[in-house]
């Protein structure tokens, strides 16, 4: 008898709860679209929010409902877009991959400070206190707010104290762009490797006083780009990446070396035996002494001086010039 009572009590309460849960699971059944877990599987699951939805599960739901396009996941890229499109049975086009760049290279070596900052190591906090410790009011403060915002560990503070993006890891999600209080990070198409590493709005010699690599608005880069892809806006060049322009000449012509080229070794021009010695290539070459030769004789490119801008490829009437090692045609060389 003594064993029977607890047995009955535990047994009946257990059965009651089990029954109750069983009934509840039927009545409160929520239909979950079976495609949603499958979509979630192919997503990178970093919950970065670049798609505009609250996390990867939000995006998966929206795609299954047809509200979001399959190529909406930027970090997932083309592979992910096609996988989702296959799951849904539609065709998808991948968006052009982008990467973030920091428009500043004035670090400890180049830029002067007006004070020592000993506060909270956050760019927002430093901006609130008198707009930061650098004299330049637009430059990178190097306190790492963008580093903390990146879900892919693609941005870091380099040895010079400036934020730098790793092109291999960057997926173009745009979180760092939103996190920078000075708004000096932006997204450029991954295929372009040159950008202006300065955000300074001052002009003239006074910029040189506080930053050796600051843009003085000399407009030499604008003049060096006949395609018109660079325009001036409030003392700062603006690069139009939609134009067919590789910006190599502009980067070379800049006297303050404000441009950053992510390609460390560029392919150089090479003149083959088709050359008739007309000398047109020398007229468009931005580097004095890079191409030499007598009239009528085959010209020669100095591989050390050549910057690989490709201007000579288009002007050569006998198509004697190629970019050595790339096999690129002149039209493609414009965007190298």
């Amino acid at each position: 008898m003594e064993i029977l009572i607890p047995l009955i009590i535990v047994g009946s309460i257990g059965a009651f709860l089990g029954l109750g849960l069983g009934i509840a699971s039927k009545k409160l059944f929520v239909h979950v679209d079976p495609r949603i877990p499958m979509i979630l599987d192919v997503l990178p699951n970093a919950n970065c929010g670049a798609c505009g939805y609250a996390g990867c599960s939000g995006f998966a739901k929206a795609v299954a409902e047809g509200k979001a396009a399959p190529n909406g996941c930027i970090p997932g890229g083309a592979k992910c877009a096609h996988a989702i499109a296959d799951l849904l049975g539609v065709t998808a086009s991948a968006e052009e991959p982008q990467m973030a760049v920091v428009h500043c290279k004035g670090g400890r070596k180049e830029a002067a400070e007006r004070a020592i900052y000993n506060g909270i190591q956050d760019c927002n906090a430093a901006t609130i206190i008198g707009n930061g410790s650098k004299i330049c009011q637009n430059g990178c403060l190097g306190l790492g707010t963008c580093v903390r915002s990146c879900p892919f560990d693609a941005i870091f503070i380099n040895d010079n104290g400036i934020a730098e993006v790793d092109p291999e890891k960057c997926t173009g999600c745009g979180k760092c762009v939103k996190s920078c209080p000075r708004k000096i990070i932006s997204l450029i198409p991954k295929v372009h490797k040159i950008f202006l590493a300065c955000s300074n709005r001052d002009r003239g010699a006074k910029v040189k006083k506080y930053c050796s690599v600051g843009c003085t608005a000399c407009t030499l880069c604008v003049k060096a780009t006949p395609s018109g892809a660079i325009t001036m806006d409030n003392n700062l060049p603006v690069l139009d990446y939609s134009k067919e322009e590789n910006f190599i000449t502009a980067a070379y012509k800049c006297p303050s070396k404000c441009y950053t080229d992510l390609v460390k070794k560029r392919s150089k021009a090479n003149i083959d035996t088709n050359c008739d010695g007309c000398g047109l290539c020398i007229t468009v070459c931005p580097v004095p002494g890079a191409i030499t030769g007598e009239k009528g004789k085959r010209h020669v490119v100095d591989k050390e001086k050549c910057i690989g801008c490709g201007n000579c490829l288009h002007i050569c009437p006998t198509h004697a010039i190629t970019l050595w090692g790339t096999g690129l045609q002149p039209k493609q060389a414009r965007m190298a």
Binding site: G20, L21, A24, S25, L28, F29, V30
Partner: peptide, 9 residues
Amino acid sequence: QLVEMALQK
């Protein structure tokens, strides 16, 4: 468990 199910619905 019950609360979780009810919330989900």
